[in-house]
Nucleic acid binder design. Structure first.
Lengths: 235, 235
DNA sequence: TGCGACAACATTGTATACAATAATTGCCGG
DNA sequence: CCGGCAATTATTGTATACAATGTTGTCGCA
């Protein structure tokens, strides 16, 4: 199974069990352990967490609402399979929203924010150093969310959360090469610019960063499988 | 009861019962029949539609996910009560997204789109002419969604759907006067510009339009009730 | 009279049972 | 040997039962 249950509620803000499942599935997608088309059976997921289908359904419906999962009536929930058009829309939205977020983050960045960003970036570097590709790719996605958090704009942050998760699926489907997509060196410059409050510089770097990510993609409809099975057999 | 069940599935795209409830509640909010803080009891809503709490819960969770409803653990679901900060964020997001949507709509507007827009606008005018304030205010909100639909960008459309619904609550809470907010004459110009493909003009009008809506607001924290009760007693 | 504890009630949270639908398998005829 | 049909199986959709929690009203006491 590619969903691993995290330890859960060690810290204060007690998340409900449905939220834990939601978070774990998003995490699995960000780490590219769960790919497009993967079936998420209710009993199957419920068994992992020891909860009833009621809870699982709540989590899956929430994921579906974010476009990360698709629910087909009477057939079940599957990890979404973004189309080329979806990909274009998602990146268009990111190019629109992220510069604004970045500017606000640079303007708003206090000591706490700087610490948050620095610590996250340290984890990114560490994951890369240790060769933990899964964590590295997830953290590089979450980096953008940390910026949104610092910007202190809940609405944008929620929008971006959805966009980042979908980006992960898009990258998995449409990337040209195996090259790591969200390069850490870009992030280093962003950390520097944001914590220094150089808004204009930060915005420019973010724009470049997003452009480079998108240029790593080849947005042509692939005959890629809804189910992972056929993909394995094709080779 | 301020939620009125619509006839439901007369047309093809069979919506699930949870979706019907979701739509009706959003509609009630857009028509300002449901105000901030109103309790949405599960049994209560279920009784209206003749469905079990299971269905109602799905609808409420979906609404909560959009920030239109707040679910307090073990206490129930309430129509959201946006703060001043929420309001600022929502309108900031609209000022960012809607010009883009408008530009795309003007660029993309074919005969079908023009028809959609014209028909919607006709309904708006009719509601106003007939003095049906509720329908008028709802249609003026939905007008923006029609533009998003024409733009053909699902991602933006979904974002905007959320923003428009929340705007309705914000306007209810923070408007200066009783004046109608989304003036139809603005919409007339937008229809004209979009269907003519005058993108630049349309964008400019939309920007002005949004600014005027926001200027009708007085964004100071009111001691307005979570529950509508205290509001009645205050007078 | 005012306050606090306790009990009765109402509402939500979760699990489970049953119904409905789709997928699978096996069978039969061509 | 293949294709279509039917029975079986698995999975989801919905309702309901029970547990947990919050709320409200009442009673006793200071």
């Amino acid at each position: 199974m590619t969903i691993t249950a995290t330890d859960g509620d060690s810290r204060g803000a007690r998340a409900s069990r449905a939220e834990v499942i939601h978070r774990d599935i998003v995490r699995a997608i960000l780490e590219q352990r769960l790919g497009p088309g993967t079936k998420l059976g209710e009993d199957e997921v419920g068994a992992i967490y020891g909860v009833s289908r009621t809870i699982v359904r709540a989590a899956l419906q929430s994921l579906a609402h974010e476009g990360i999962v698709v629910i087909e009536k009477n057939r079940g929930a599957f990890v979404a399979h973004p189309t080329v058009k979806d990909a274009a829309e998602v990146f268009s939205a990111r190019r629109l929203i992220e510069p604004v977020i970045t500017e606000l983050a640079a303007a708003n960045c206090d000591a706490a924010g700087a610490k948050l960003l620095a610590e996250h970036f340290a984890r990114e570097k560490q994951a890369e150093r240790e060769g933990d590709d899964r964590a590295a790719i997830r953290l590089s996605g979450e980096f953008h969310l940390v910026i949104a958090r610092i910007a202190g704009q809940g609405v944008y942050e929620n929008f971006l959360r959805e966009l980042v998760a979908r980006s992960s699926l898009i990258i998995l489907l449409y990337r040209r090469s195996r090259a790591q997509c969200c390069k850490v060196d870009h992030h280093a410059g962003l950390v520097e610019a944001i914590t220094s409050g150089r808004a204009e510089d930060a915005v420019r770097q973010m724009t470049v960063h997003l452009d480079e990510i998108e240029q790593e993609l080849e947005l042509v409809e692939t005959a890629m499988p809804a189910k992972p099975l056929s993909e394995l057999l094709a080779g």
